[in-house]
Amino acid sequence: MSWPFSTLGKIVVVTGGGSGIGLSYALLALENGAKSVIIGDIAMTDEAQNIVTQKTNLIFQHCDVTQWADLQRLIDISVAKFDDVPDIYVASAGVFEPAYSNFWEDPEPLESNGYKHVDINVNHPIKFTRLAIRALLGKQKQGVVALVSSIAGYSKQYPAPIYSATKHAVVGFTRSLGDAQRLQGVKVISICPGIVSTPIWTTGTPGSGERFGISEGILITSDAVAKTISDGIESAEYPGGTILEVSKLGTRVVPEWFIQPPGMVDGKMPEGTDVPEHMIVKSLQPIMNVTEKERGKLA
């Protein structure tokens, strides 16, 4: 059983709110009447900085999402300022095979014993969800957690296998938490965008737009994703456990079983929506450069 959940008068917290999807959703939440939005990020774009200085109900808090204490601090700030915990939790912080933590270049030393990529994309949304449930139960009120995943969460990505694995994890976690709406009064959903025009592809590390040859023709806007997040949160049409996809073709709920690739027509992607061949070739070249250097090293 699901229920509608208006943003009006609610306290919202967004990780990764300093730019991109997170910032777009934070602004939309304010437009929809949120009481206040707390954005947590390691930094803000100039655009975000200007907006925060102009809006008293938009609060920035430095947050390294790999540090669980930083995630809890976002909730503590809400309690300190409003004597209440947030009602809506959006985990939008994420990275895409960054230079400091990726599969093919493998920059992290053996003593790291883990990929920071996974800490950001998997451990962060999982822990954020647990903290949200604990906070909402503590105040005995309903709430919504929206986790930003990706279409890569149910597709293969040879050039970006850790990213794909992390997004698969978020999809599986979201499905597993579907019953939290009925049992704890906390709706947990996931939004799965296609390729979005955000700093990940432009100024973000490692400048993946250039590295992978992303072109404007296949991008969707962060505002389109923000609207889908908002719809997922507010509408009773999307119960806990929902995987809500958004692409250039629109939105759809991804079924648990027998999923078809997005937008298939007669077994093929419609023109203008598939990844161009030159992008695939370009994304493979850095991998081949790395692995060719490793060939025969142990002989």
Rank of each mutant, 00 (worst) to 15 (best):
W3N: 01
F5M: 07
F5G: 03
V12E: 02
V12C: 11
V13E: 08
T15N: 05
T15R: 04
T15L: 04
G16A: 14
S19Y: 05
S19K: 07
I21A: 01
Y25T: 10
L28C: 12
L28F: 13
A29Q: 02
G33N: 01
A34Y: 00
S36I: 07
I38L: 10
G40W: 01
A43L: 07
M44I: 08
D46L: 02
N50C: 10
N57E: 11
L58M: 13
Q61Y: 00
D64K: 01
W68I: 15
L71T: 00
L74Q: 04
A80E: 11
K81P: 00
F82V: 07
D83F: 01
D84R: 00
D84L: 00
A99K: 09
S101V: 09
N102I: 13
E105Y: 09
P109H: 09
Y115W: 15
N121T: 10
N123F: 13
H124E: 12
T129G: 08
T129H: 09
T129D: 08
R130H: 14
G138T: 11
K141L: 11
G143N: 04
V144S: 06
V148T: 03
V148L: 11
Y154P: 00
S155R: 11
S155H: 11
Q157C: 06
Y158A: 11
S164P: 10
H168A: 09
A169H: 06
T174F: 14
T174W: 12
Q181L: 10
R182A: 14
G185F: 05
I200R: 00
W201C: 00
G204V: 02
R211C: 02
L219R: 11
V225R: 06
D231L: 14
G232E: 12
G232S: 07
E234V: 12
A236S: 15
K248D: 11
T251S: 08
E256K: 06
G263A: 01
G267A: 06
G267K: 02
E277T: 13
E277Q: 14
M279E: 13
V281I: 15
L284Q: 13
Q285Y: 06
P286G: 14
I287C: 03
E292T: 13
E292D: 12
E294M: 11
E294F: 15
G296M: 12
